[in-house]
Design a protein around this nucleic acid. Structure first.
Lengths: 328, 328
DNA sequence: CTGAAAGCGCTTACAG
DNA sequence: CTGAAAGCGCTTACAG
């Protein structure tokens, strides 16, 4: 079980170290018979190449970090899942790094994985990314962001059209007959969160009501209290994201308010979990599964051609059971 | 932005490479003035040490892989979260690896991270771990498992007393007056899943009903159908895990069956999400937050003293709103 | 306390 | 097609 090196294999196979190296890394550069012999010996010995030695020489590994604030939020979980898949298809191995929103930990992960010679990294931030700091920590611009980024940014990004999403929610709700449509905000800090709120403010018209609970875990409780205290309650509520919608609905239900009989709720994200919620959540779907693959593509494109793309995907309405006509 | 090496710093600071190395790695072995000077120069240059070169020489990194089947299941997500925390406190960096249950991917991750000189790995399996294969892929026994393991296993493990958990559920339900108590199974494959089911079979008595939907995502739909078709329905149901309970409750609600008015449901896991469910889920809590730290401790203990521990934690009842007295 | 040298496990021009 | 040598960026006995 002691660790084997390339020289052990070379000795056992009766060839030089460089031949063993070639047999693995550039098989066509070695006579077929030699190669097979070497490979067989290596196999028998149970030898596997050390990626770190290789990385040190070669200057690259297939390891790609995906940095997320947390993974309990199913949005990040689904993203991680789809990106793991997408990475595998492209010959990478995804390493998920959880930062808890800590800048320090983000930096630590990025330097660690960077100096592991990862070709690039992907960040799904919980706050606007500080590229100055990023650059300091080694990755420089070899990063793709899953959020909107500032105008003219040199960092590729993948995001969803937030305004269009909120618009879809309004269209759906107004189509059902709702006029007073409220909004509950969730985590803030990202451009995405900001954009959704802005879109709501623009589209709400005079009947605007913001149930702002803040961004911690007790937020939905406060939003519910706010709703209950309202002299003229909205008949529908758009939640900034699905998790917020879940908390809101559970809180309303606990206070005897029925969804959608008393009030309709639309989420934003399109988490699979929404299907299992009670009631199943009507929501604006982001194409999470596509986003992972796209992020990887953008990273490769930038590396190869120096092109910085900002992809904006179209959201769509996922109509389930948490919306209905307003109570008459 | 071109990558700096230790020699660049040495040159800039006017010292030998080994002095730079010591300034970073064994500060007490360098005169204070020299050290500060070196460190300052390094800082100005924006130099950070390459973990891979270091690993290659040193034979170890602070990187610890946590291998999970998926992260959409909040159980694994919460585990990952708490272990990231615990790893940080102990000087490690956790790298989350998602396998989708694929043996091949597990192996790939393990070899990759192993050969990155990770000191050990932690596996939260979705099926019984095949240690033969593990050994083949480099990590040998330097692994800790979060599940029960076979008797006499040389691999440390952390798990929760499944039987006691099911017992708690029965005590709670019978205390409320329930007699016909059913069971819905979830993912199978792990010892844990097996143990929960076995405990149910032992404790259910003659009124045993298994609503077995299988382990895919449509499972809860089938379990609901089964429940509805029953001539004599159970008044309470124990779900093999929280996710299954969520699906079950949502499915029941969609069919007009109210929880807990018509039927009580108890989950198993104690996910935070259960608090936001509608109704908030009564469940058997596993101390997930502790499990992460413990797994790390066991790994260190085995490395240091060669001791293989199997820790079995006590579950507890988390009484929320999905259980009540049976309908009269 | 500091420097010079060897070496961790590989790869890659360069000869042959 | 294969071998010998240099070197990736570090660390660590060993001298001094």
């Amino acid at each position: 079980m002691t660790k084997l090196s390339i020289d052990d294999v070379a000795r056992a196979a009766g060839v030089h170290r460089s031949t063993v190296s070639r047999a693995f890394s550039r098989p066509e550069a070695v006579k077929a018979a030699t190669r097979e012999h070497v490979l067989r010996v290596a196999e028998e010995l149970g030898y596997t190449m050390s990626p770190v030695a290789r990385a040190l020489r070669h200057g690259t590994t297939p390891l790609v970090p995906l940095v997320v604030p947390d993974v309990i939020n199913p949005f990040y979980a689904e993203l991680a899942e789809s990106m793991t898949q997408a990475a595998g298809e492209r010959g990478y191995q995804l390493l998920l790094c959880i930062t808890d929103g800590s800048d320090v930990r983000t930096a630590e992960y990025l330097t660690a994985v960077h100096s592991l010679y990862a070709p690039f990294g992907v960040i799904a931030p919980s706050t606007r990314v500080n590229f100055e700091r990023l650059r300091q920590f080694g990755f420089g611009d070899r990063v793709v962001v899953i959020d909107r980024v500032a105008e003219g940014s040199e960092v590729p990004s993948v995001t969803v059209d937030s305004r269009r999403g909120i618009e879809l929610a309004f269209e759906h709700l107004r189509g059902l007959g709702h006029e007073r449509i409220g909004y509950v905000s969730g985590i803030s800090g990202t451009y995405t969160a900001h954009d959704r709120m802005t879109a709501y403010l623009e589209l709400a018209g005079p009947a605007l009501v913001i149930l702002d609970g803040g961004s911690d875990s007790a937020a939905s409780g406060r939003a519910v209290a706010h709703y209950l205290a309202l002299p003229e309650r909205p008949t529908a509520i758009i939640a900034a994201n699905d998790m917020t919608a879940f908390g809101l609905i559970a809180g309303l239900a606990a206070s005897g308010v029925r969804v959608p009989a008393d009030v309709s709720v639309v989420g934003f994200d399109g988490l699979m979990l929404g299907e299992r919620f009670n009631p199943a959540l009507t929501t604006i779907r982001q194409p999470i599964a596509e986003m992972g693959g796209l992020a990887l593509d953008l990273a490769e494109k930038k590396a190869a051609e120096g092109v910085v793309d900002h992809v904006v995907l179209a959201p769509e309405l996922l109509e389930r059971s948490s919306t209905a006509a307003p109570p008459s």
